[in-house]
């Protein structure tokens, strides 16, 4: 009799206990279906770096205009401050206010462009250069550079045209008629040429006021200045995660030059625009990471005659114009 009583007690206890447990599970199952706020212990956090450099911020956005371009990629400004933006195969010319002035279609996806003093437009396609005159009519199509080529930048001077080829990691020098003169930047220890290190297709070239080539060796975070024959003239390098340098495998992704020889640089990863002087010291910050969308790619930059910084924000489909703040900062 006693035994059965114990048995019954045990049975009831087990049932009550397990039902309580199952109820707990049921309730927690329903609750866990609600979305949990993110709390990532493995967050890759670069907020500190994103905020650093605010004291250098001395530019402000003065104007922007929208683009009808979901494949916006290349940017250029001519001596009359007209803005050229590519959209896939298309090239559009805008005035400073953003009014579309003229359009044309190139023979392929436009990866980079530059405009010379005669308003001729040089378009770097994936492996060839397409030249339009000021009426947007094709003048010439230069010979293809082959399947290894992957052009990322073009700089047009008074007599020379430099084309950056990230695929073959060299800069091609042409005359304006499209004759290939020589290639620059292959590793050559005897000439102290370090060789371009381009791990991904970010490889920019510029021409300074003296007509010399500057190439951005992004893998080394280095700016290199070359004579037309390909010998290294000078260089500076700034590798750092902090505001005064460049980091990652290919930065600065894009660059432009101010009349005094200072560099306007645009980075990927931490999207920001800065100005470094001719020997590489940080001078100013144009735009901070919080001024761009989180997942945007590095922005193209250009400089107009008023020393304004023109920015192509492809993610927002906008041209944004920055200018030095007035007065003491």
């Amino acid at each position: 009799m006693r035994q059965t009583k114990n048995d019954k007690f045990l049975t009831v206890t087990i049932i009550v206990l397990s039902l309580a447990g199952l109820t707990y599970f049921g309730v927690s199952a329903i609750q866990s279906d609600h979305r949990i706020q993110r709390d990532n212990p493995f967050e890759y956090n670069i907020d500190n770096f994103a905020q650093s450099g605010a004291s250098y911020l001395s530019y402000e956005q003065v104007h922007d205009f929208p683009l009808q371009a979901d494949q916006a990629h290349a940017l250029g400004v001519d001596d009359w401050d007209r803005i050229y933006v590519s959209d896939g195969n298309k090239i559009d010319m805008y005035d400073e206010q953003g009014r579309l002035l003229q359009s044309a279609t190139a023979a392929g996806f436009i990866r980079a462009l530059d405009v010379d003093v005669n308003k001729n437009i040089y378009l770097a396609l994936e492996s060839a250069v397409d030249v339009l005159d000021s009426t947007f009519t094709r003048q010439a199509m230069w010979p293809d550079l082959g399947s290894l080529a992957f052009l990322t930048s073009i700089a047009v001077g008074d007599t020379d045209v430099y084309v950056a080829d990230a695929g073959q990691q060299v800069v091609w020098r042409y005359d304006k008629a499209g004759h290939l003169l020589n290639k620059i930047g292959e590793k050559d220890d005897s000439q102290d040429v370090p060789g371009f290190l381009i791990p991904s297709p970010y490889f920019d070239v510029l021409i300074d006021s003296d007509g010399y080539l500057w190439a951005v060796n992004t893998g080394r975070h280095q700016f290199e200045n070359y004579l037309p024959d390909g010998s290294l003239r000078s260089s500076w390098q700034k590798s750092s995660m902090s505001i005064d340098g460049f980091s990652g495998c290919c930065n600065p992704a894009h660059a432009a030059m101010l009349p005094d020889g200072a560099f306007v640089t645009s980075e990927k990863g931490l999207l920001r625009i800065k100005i470094h002087n001719a020997i590489g010291e940080l001078q100013a910050v144009v735009a901070m990471p919080d001024q761009f969308d989180n997942d945007a790619d590095a922005v193209e930059v250009a400089v107009n005659s008023k020393e304004q910084i023109i920015v192509l924000d492809a993610k927002r489909q906008q041209v944004r114009i920055f200018q030095k703040k007035e007065g003491p900062t």
Binding site: I14, G21, Y24, F25, A29
Partner: peptide, 17 residues
């Protein structure tokens, strides 16, 4: 943890039911 708990109580209950 909850799923293990669910299984464990299921088995516990299973001894009598």
């Amino acid at each position: 943890f909850n799923l293990i708990l669910f299984g464990a109580f299921m088995l516990l209950l299973g001894t009598v039911v």
